[in-house]
Amino acid sequence: MSSTVCSGDPMGVAVHSDAMYADPGGIFASCGQPYVKFRRQHDPVVVDYLTHLGPSPARVLDLGCGPGTLALDLAERGMRITGVDASQEMLDEGRKWAEQRGLSEAVEWRCVDAATVDHIDRLGTFDGAVIADAFHWLDRQRVLMALDKVVRPGGFVAVVGYRAPGTPREWWHPLLVKLREKHLGAADLAGPSTPYVRLEVGHEAVVRASPFCRVAVLRADYRRAYTLDELVGLQHTFAYSSAATLGERQEAFEADLRSTLSTVQPSGLFTTTLQAAVIVGRRPESR
């Protein structure tokens, strides 16, 4: 794990502001149920690391929580979680999943824009906040400024990614990109009708330019495996290849996907090694 302490005025670093999506709640339309069924939970090393960032039991805000992929794992380890997402569909699936896992009382769900958490009535303060595989969908600077108002002194912000920036993607990723381009065109989509906005500045630089500029980074290798059915189902969890985005092209896309993947991997088992990353920001001690 690497650690760096910022110096000077953290807000003096120039960072391009992120574009806002007009309908953030619609980006993952139709993804709720597939997300619970096919998205892999975060590696235990990452979950264990997060549970030791604050006091026990910690009160933690999960922004862009989806159906609770990370929130419920943290709740199982004793954290008190408030999950925030712009998609009511995702939160509804999260409530069902929490009930199935006996965690209905452990997570509070709020359907709001993550950038407005400092204005939510009776939200209170938190020991920390996590943002897992969702930071790229948010107005990152606004979110971090809002968190500066609701995360207590000494608290943390943790940006979690299933794949560390600059590390290789799954070996089958280029095949999926070509198939999406064939069926949907060259541009990535943020849901059914909105182009995806590519960010100019990486997450770590944005955190360093925020009030949480004292940064530590954890990287952890892990193995991931899917059957053919699981890998096909996984595509319905992504905004750029969801059922809502594909529409009437879904059946043709899936048939093409199955044929292509079966050709390159007749065994039907797809395995890879990835490297997860956790970027943890805290305020300077002088604050």
Rank of each mutant, 00 (worst) to 15 (best):
G233T: 06
L123C: 01
R80D: 09
G202W: 06
D9V: 09
A220W: 03
G247A: 11
L261G: 07
D23E: 11
V215F: 01
D92F: 05
R163V: 14
K37I: 02
P153Y: 13
S286G: 01
A277K: 04
R283E: 00
P211E: 05
A14L: 12
R180S: 09
E105N: 13
D118E: 11
L176Q: 13
P168N: 10
A98Q: 02
R283G: 08
M79A: 14
S7C: 14
Q88L: 12
E204F: 01
S242A: 15
A98R: 06
P266R: 02
L147D: 03
Y196T: 10
R198I: 10
G154R: 09
R122Y: 08
C65D: 03
L74K: 00
A225R: 15
A255K: 15
I27Y: 05
V206M: 07
T82H: 08
H42S: 08
G94C: 03
V130H: 00
A75I: 02
V232N: 03
E99T: 14
R258I: 10
P195C: 01
V217E: 09
D256T: 09
A14Y: 13
M20K: 12
E200L: 14
V107S: 04
D23A: 07
I131D: 00
P195L: 12
L91E: 02
A276G: 06
F253I: 09
F126L: 00
V197P: 03
R169P: 00
L138N: 01
L228H: 08
G268Q: 02
E76G: 13
D148P: 03
L147F: 01
L176S: 03
V15G: 11
Q250F: 11
Q275I: 07
G154P: 00
V46T: 12
K149R: 15
T272K: 03
A252E: 13
A190K: 09
V264R: 14
V177R: 13
R208C: 05
A187S: 15
A86F: 10
Q100T: 11
P174S: 12
G54R: 05
G202V: 05
R282E: 11
L50N: 09
W171E: 09
M79D: 08
H16M: 08
P174W: 12
D229K: 06
L189G: 06
H16V: 05
D23G: 00
E254M: 09
R258M: 07
P153R: 04
L228G: 07
M11V: 04
K182P: 04
L144M: 14
L261K: 04
Q141C: 13
G155T: 06
H42T: 06
G233A: 12
L228I: 07
T260W: 00
T271Q: 15
A239Y: 00
S242H: 04
D139W: 10
A216N: 00
D148M: 04
P195Q: 09
R214H: 14
A71Y: 06
G64P: 07
D229P: 04
G94P: 00
I131L: 10
D73Y: 04
S193Y: 07
V159S: 09
Q235E: 11
R140I: 06
R163L: 13
V47I: 13
A86V: 08
T273H: 05
A146V: 02
L246R: 15
I81V: 10
A239S: 15
I27S: 00
L123M: 07
P67A: 11
W97D: 06
W171M: 01
V201D: 13
R283N: 08
R110E: 13
V157Q: 03
S7D: 13
A58N: 01
H52F: 11
